[in-house]
Every structure is written in C-alpha cells, then in structure tokens.
Design a protein around this nucleic acid. Sequence first.
DNA 1: TATAAATTAAGTATTATTACTTAGTTTTAT
DNA 2: ATAAAACTAAGTAATAATACTTAATTTATA
Lengths: 217, 217
Amino acid sequence: MINVVLADDHILVRDGIKSLLEDQEGVHVIAEASNGKEALEVVERALPDVLIVDIRMPEMNGIEVVAELKKTNKTIKTLVLSMHDSEEYVLNAISAGADGYLLKGSSKEEFMKALHMIAEGGKYFTGDISSIIINSMINNGGKQLEEKEAPEATFKLTKREKQILGLVLDGKSNKEIAEDLDVSKRTAEVHRFNLMKKLDVKNLIELTKVASKYRLV
Amino acid sequence: MINVVLADDHILVRDGIKSLLEDQEGVHVIAEASNGKEALEVVERALPDVLIVDIRMPEMNGIEVVAELKKTNKTIKTLVLSMHDSEEYVLNAISAGADGYLLKGSSKEEFMKALHMIAEGGKYFTGDISSIIINSMINNGGKQLEEKEAPEATFKLTKREKQILGLVLDGKSNKEIAEDLDVSKRTAEVHRFNLMKKLDVKNLIELTKVASKYRLV
DNA sequence: TATAAATTAAGTATTATTACTTAGTTTTAT
DNA sequence: ATAAAACTAAGTAATAATACTTAATTTATA
C-alpha cells in the first residue's frame, strides 16, 4: 500500500488526482494540503510514503517544500507535479532532491508508473523535460546543481505580487491574469506596475533577468 | 513529414515498428538496416530526419553508430531503442549524442511523442531511466559529454531581423531600435512584427524562450 | 483595538505594440 | 539584366502597457 499526501492549492485538481489515485489498488490518499506550509505540517503528522506536490502554491512553493522535507526526513519520497516545463523549475526541483517530476499534461498511466517507481525508491522524470536535463548535464555535468544559491533580494514582493509575477513570466497579459485570478484588469495592472517598480525594471526582458537572478518564481 | 530509417537486427521487431509508424500520418520509413555498418551506409544514402536504432546489433552496435553519425552528420537525429536500462548503455548513448532513448517496453504513444519531439530538435529520454540520469548528474558528472548544439530552426530570419531581434532581447523599444539603426520607428515595428510571426511567438516571454532554444543571438 | 500593510479597483493620459495593407527602393542571386 | 528577396516606411485601428492618483476594503500584527 502506497500512502500519499496531496498538496495543491486548487481543490479541483486535488480532487481529480485523488479520485484517480483512489481508483487504483494499492494507493491511498491519507491527507491533503492547499499550500506549502500546510503541506509540511501535514506530512510531519501523516508520514506518507510519497508527497505529490504542485510547484506553484501560496505561502511556500512546492520546490521549497521538497527542499525542506529532504533536509528533515529523507525517507519520504516526493513527486513534483507542475504545469510548467521551465528549465529553472526542473533544475531547482532536482537540486531540491525531488524524486520525480511530471507535467500536468501527463497521462494517467505515466502518473501511476511514476508513483510506483518513486515509492519503490526509484526516480521518475518525464521524458518531456529530457532536453532540459540532458542539456544541463552536457553543459556543466550537473555539478553546480547543489551549490548555487540566489543572491539576497533587497526588495520584498507581497504574496499577490509574486503570484502575478509568475503569471507575467508565463507570458500572460493583464487581461488574462485578471481572468485567471478573478480580479479586475485594473487590479492586475496595478500589481504588475507595482512589482515592476519594486524590481526596478522597465520591460519584460529585464524582468525575466531579475526574476531568474533572484529565483523569484 | 518525418523520414525515418530503422536499424534493428530482428526482422520481426523492425516490421512491427515499421507498421506502427506507417499507421501514423506524417511519418515515413524510407529505409531499413539490419546491422550497424549497414545502418551508417543506408543513412548516408537516404538522409532521414531520424534514425531509430537498436543498441545490440552485429558488426557495430547502435551507440557506435550514433557516435559516428554525430561526427559526420549532425543534422540527422537519433533515437536509441533498447531492451536494456543499464547505466552504461544510457550514459554512453548520451555521450554519443543520442537525441532520445526509449525502452522496448514503451507504449506506442510515448514512442510517437518521442519521435516528434526529436524530429523537432528536442530530446526525449524515457522517464524509466531517470534514476540513471539524475544520479549521474548529482554524483559524478565525471563522464565527458559532448558539446551542446542548438536544434535546427525551421524558420529563417534575415540579417536585419536577426539584428533587430538582438535589440529586442536587450529590452529596447521600437523607438530605441529605430534610433539605434537610424531607420523610422515604423520600419522597426515591421521588422519586429515579421520576426515574431516567423518565430510564432505572441509576446516577449515566448520570444526569449525560442531565441534561447535556437541560440538565435 | 488601533494602525499599518495589502488588496482591490476606479479615473486619466500617454506611449507602445499588434496586426495588418500597400508600395517604393535597394540588394542579391541567377 | 532581371527577377526575387530584403529593406524601407507610410496608413489605420485595435489592444496593451506605463505612469500615475485616489480611495474603499480586507487582512495582519503590535
């Protein structure tokens, strides 16, 4: 029996994955969490075999959760579920010690295979992110994976601003962001304006550079 | 249309994969080979987009074929098909410059996904061999790997467009670009519009990703 | 419970980009 | 030499972002 904790801020996604897992023999979802901090607490109490964790969550992101968990409890396996195949996410997840990485577009079959392999002590990184992993291997032998640390930022983004920054870096317009977060377009504009001012950038190009430098997402 | 050469010493395996591929739209098996040396000769003549190659073959094994091919003709992509997930095979295939690695137990869906990703210049290494790759990344990095090269682009930017792309990626506005190049703002706008259309991107975020993928600057 | 911080969102104005079309001029290759 | 491609730049219209200000709520915290 594989005991699982699910951490994702979207209830619908959580429920979907839960129902998918509960249909399988030998898998049991013993607890859930809707943000990063909660995920850590829940895992401490429930002690699952595997934590399935989304990257983008309030309070603490999924990669931070994995990194923290691997410091304190190495026996609990972690499967990172993400919508994004960005190089930064993938390499940071590996650095943090994730045992697996799947995209949300993965099939049920792949998901189950990954879960079983990870529960048995293996690793599973979906083939869709091969380019990122192989290129990283080729360029630097994966060596500085463990050591690199972001410089400390002098600015401080609010939770909402970080969230909006993420969406901006996905290439979304203010209108799309507003729809995603269910706020007015004007609100999205204000947040975007404020965060760009805080980061002292005047266009998206500079924004991507600063965000990557300080690992803001 | 993806043109494929199949190399495997077992006729049955070859026929099976061939029929599977020919069922797909946009894929065509243009030639076959039953050993490593033959594979090289056939590839030279047929010039496929992708060579699908088994590791264990008479005369010359699949990894040697890949290594040799990458020395002489870098545009032809290679997908290694293997029954084996041994560390040696996997890491040697990567060193040799293979663009993908699948186990013979892979599903048709995964096989097709891998083939398409590879044909488009990406890489695809099945999740089943993640442990090997990740462990190699994290621990040694001691293996000497090939130089990374950009995937071949399907679009073709003009000199001026490349120049303007560079300035766009410096975060310059059309007005600034126009001043830099001493042309009208409208001209800068047109070049920017055209190049973004060629690259099939709709915003600066996507542009930075595509530019980085194809090393356009 | 004050009070500060964060979130929301309106107004106003300017500037920039997108998404075309048309068309003259220059460069390059056959 | 001539056709093709590239470069130039105008027009038009819509959409998006920048650069603020003001201000009502909601939330956190001292």
